[in-house]
Design a protein around this nucleic acid. Structure first.
Lengths: 150, 150
DNA sequence: TTCCTGAATCGGAATGATTCTTGTTTAGAG
DNA sequence: CTCTAAACAAGAATCATTCCGATTCAGGAA
């Protein structure tokens, strides 16, 4: 909970504005889910958010948590990290490579780049721990999905 | 299936050697699961691998697929992509940032870097599709896990 | 302010991926 | 060839997530 009160308020205000713009109702539940995220730097998962928000909104359901997180993400108010889909993807290519992930079909393409293999890691990262690997993830729309879209 | 016969054989040989070194049995099932991955660039998920291997080994069980994939990953023979855990992680920090992920406890730390925000994307990626975002993922062991480890 | 309606919520059941359990098979050391 | 720990099969169990039918409520209109 290192996020300042002022920053939380700023985020809440932006969220309220985005909801009004998108004709989304400013429900109590929606605001409390967002407030929970606005006040933390922990990258919590849905269950953790549920447990915390429940203290303030005892009757809230898990379904609301999941639905709300998806909505907030669609609106660009929050980020969903790490996950492409919930399924693990495997790969026998052990050469150092990076990924292009199509956000529509989920397909993954490998690519190579000497420059990207040797990224300048900021010194500040050392305080988190010892870095063992680095990988670049690009997201976008693959050519075949782009075609079928029009 | 763009992987050459020779490359598949090379990978199979390495896998056999790694198994011998690690005193892992070279079972029919284990070899077929690895062969499936060695021959593709598709990043299939467990279910897809199961469906394919089943054609050659009809009695194989899903459990074996999952167990084998985990074993092969431990041995450094395959990669598991995209996934930290199977749970989505959320984040209200919409400033462009990157992640340090502890492979032991799964904790995620944000970090910032102007240089990393503006990565040189290889031209070849353009053939996959239009890139919309780029993010760096660092993996390693965080200081607190490193401490409790000794 | 009150009324109305579609959006949002609730609670529990359903789904789908993954893991566990129990009994059986088998690779490979001796 | 024998023996045994490792690996496997089958299906049950678990866990995250989504769906569904019934209910509530935000916020625009009167």
């Amino acid at each position: 909970m290192a996020v300042s009160k002022a920053e939380i308020e700023r985020r809440m205000e932006r969220m309220a504005q985005t909801c009004r713009d998108g004709r989304l109702k400013l429900t109590h539940q929606r605001m409390e889910v967002f407030r929970e995220l606005a006040g933390t730097e922990d990258h919590p998962d849905a269950e953790t958010i549920y447990q915390h928000v429940r203290r303030r909104v005892p009757a809230i359901s898990r379904d609301t948590i999941y639905r709300t997180l998806a909505t907030l993400e669609e609106q660009g108010l929050i980020h969903k990290a790490e996950i492409l889909s919930s399924r693990g993807r495997y790969d026998a290519n052990m050469d150092h490579h990076h990924h292009f992930i199509c956000t529509v079909c989920g397909r993954v393409h490998d690519f190579y780049s000497r420059t990207l293999d040797d990224l300048p890691i900021p010194r500040s990262v050392a305080s988190f721990g010892r870095v063992e690997s680095a990988q670049v993830q690009l997201r976008g729309i693959c050519t075949s999905c782009a075609k079928t879209k029009e």
